[in-house]
Nucleic acid binder design. Structure first.
Length: 489
RNA sequence: GGUCUCGUGGCCGAGCGGCUAGGCACCGGUCUGCAAAACCGUCUACAGCGGUUCGAAUCCGCUCGAGACCUCCA
């Protein structure tokens, strides 16, 4: 374990405070994050949450925790509205596209994996699906029924919120009061199965035309959306585990219901630290599939969307996200991305420069102070923007070394290099922009061309020199005349 | 309508009682045949109005504005 691990503070949505992180089992961490409902392409807003928790995962790994990271795939049970009526999202898409539901699931799961891979997000330790855990869900319902906190009506089972709230604080996560919730509930016609509008479905009876259904003790049906996360987190992480993450918009009702289901089945609140990532906005509004205010990662990479002036590399987008705290909303604009792109390149060049720094017998740079600043930033509720700022402070120092205005010992340089790379590559999850394809031939040509240009320059033949430069520029190759010779990109 | 969050310099964003991040842009400089790039420096902001305090962007109240949740959403 890293010695900094004991100082990690996490903002807990349940208490509204930053708390020191103490895992249930020392050195081991169980973390569950709500994954996507795979009925469509993931948009950039979805990605932000997963990238935020990728940062959490990576930093915990860096600190030396043994961590089991579970992130589910919702492939059934997610209805179009939470009146517990309406069509299943997967089934609807399947009907519209005339495909099997599992073809829909497969298509968009593959897309999801591909996109997260492009963003260099680690895959979770376990990625369970709702359809693969019907039995576990049924068992949990039985447990809740046994405890008298759910009731069956016409082949459906509903969670009894009123009864539950006699023993447990329903609404504690989202800070809501039952009375307020009821007051805000609209009357819905013909849905009198529920005793209380706040009750939510654990199991829904399926009509004959329903295409995704399973047999259960209550007849043929399908599980409610909130249940899968409870069943799967319990199965893989235990009745109580350390961290549960998800987007802010899942806080209510989804996570509130998860707490209720956990308490109702085991008597214990399932999660110690609730973490919620904030939304990515576009034009100041939340990115959302249902409103169409979205941007797809593929559009972002290619630049094929009217809000973009050009395409951006996934690593630039990731870096852009790292410059904002995960609990703050982040507004997406093309200008902001362009700014991030410049900064990203600056950071990456400084890292490359580290290998070219010459060492000395003494250091004028406080290397340990810089390294400590990386940890203190991340230990303060994963404050990546502060980490980035501290890394840029380091960049400034590296430039000073390059200019000969500062000195560093070999040991300090080694330590700095190791830690800076660890935080940039392992923790922030950034990678250098890989040159596309095989450039060896181009490099040979460029060496030759730049050599000829240098000869012209040596002869003060500016006409030839500039002709080469302009010609290359027209071909999209930028020539940079530096102190130590000419480079290109 | 109810609950809650937020309003920071040209832009994006940290900070959340005193030490006034960072990136980008702008401007100035170094370098350079010129240009670009790179590097260095400058720019001192916290919606408005009151209050608490020796001291507030940071705490409290009010006003205005934006957003989220309350219905599917990461």
């Amino acid at each position: 374990m890293n010695s900094y691990a004991k100082d990690l503070h996490i903002y807990n949505s349940l208490t509204g405070k930053k708390e020191i992180f103490t895992p249930i089992h020392p050195a081991f961490v169980g973390m569950y994050v709500c994954g996507p409902t795979v009925y469509n392409y993931v948009h950039l807003g979805n990605c932000r949450t997963f990238i935020s928790f990728d940062l959490v995962y990576r930093y915990l790994l860096h600190l030396g925790f043994k961590i089991r990271y579970v992130r589910n795939i919702t492939d059934v049970g997610h209805l179009e509205n939470d009146a517990d009526e309406g069509e299943d999202k997967i089934a609807k898409k399947a009907r519209l596209d005339q495909l099997e539901p599992m073809e829909i699931v497969q298509k968009y799961t593959l897309d999801f994996h591909k996109v997260l891979d492009q963003f260099n997000a680690y895959p979770p330790s376990i990625e369970p699906t709702a359809t693969g855990h019907i039995i576990e869900q049924i068992e949990m319902i039985q447990e809740i029924l046994k405890n008298g906190l759910a009731y069956e009506v016409n082949g459906s089972v509903y969670f009894d919120v009123n009864k539950y709230s006699e023993s447990f604080p329903y609404g504690e996560l989202s800070g809501r009061k039952i009375e307020d919730l009821i007051a805000g509930t609209r009357e819905l016609d013909g849905q009198d199965e529920k005793r209380n509008p706040l009750d939510f479905a654990l199991w829904k009876n399926a009509s004959p035309e329903h295409i995704m259904k399973w047999t259960s003790p209550w007849g043929i049906g399908f599980p409610g959306w909130h249940l899968e996360c409870s069943a799967m987190s319990t199965k893989y992480l235990g009745e109580q585990f350390d961290i549960h993450g998800g987007g802010m918009d899942l806080k209510f009702p989804h996570h509130e219901c998860e707490i209720a289901q956990g308490c109702a089945s085991t008597g214990k609140s399932p999660v110690n630290y609730w973490m919620h990532g904030n939304m990515l906005t576009l034009n100041g509004k939340k990115m959302s599939k249902s409103t169409g205010n979205t941007l797809l990662p593929s559009e972002l990479f290619s630049g094929e969307n009217e809000v973009l002036t050009k395409g951006f590399h996934p690593m630039v987008v990731r870096f852009f996200m790292m410059q904002a705290h995960y609990r703050s909303t982040l507004d997406f604009t093309s200008d902001a991305l362009s700014a991030a792109e410049k900064g990203f390149e600056k950071l990456m060049e400084a890292i490359q420069d580290l290998s070219r720094v010459s060492t000395s017998t003494a250091s004028t740079i406080d290397v340990n102070g810089l390294i400590a600043s990386y940890y203190s930033a991340m230990n303060d509720d994963f404050n990546a923007p502060i980490l980035v700022a501290n890394l840029f402070e380091t960049v400034k120092q590296i430039n000073a070394l390059k200019e000969g205005k500062a000195t560093i010992t070999q040991a300090d340089l080694d330590g700095l290099t190791k830690n800076m790379k660890a935080f940039v590559f392992d923790v922030l999850g950034l990678t250098t922009l890989s040159e596309s394809g095989d450039n060896s031939k181009l490099e040979g040509v460029m060496d030759l061309v730049l050599n000829l240009r240098q000869q012209a320059r040596d002869n003060k033949d500016w006409a030839t020199s500039d002709k080469i430069r302009d010609g290359l520029a027209a071909a999209g190759l930028v020539v940079k005349d530096g102190k130590k010779g000419t480079s290109w990109k």
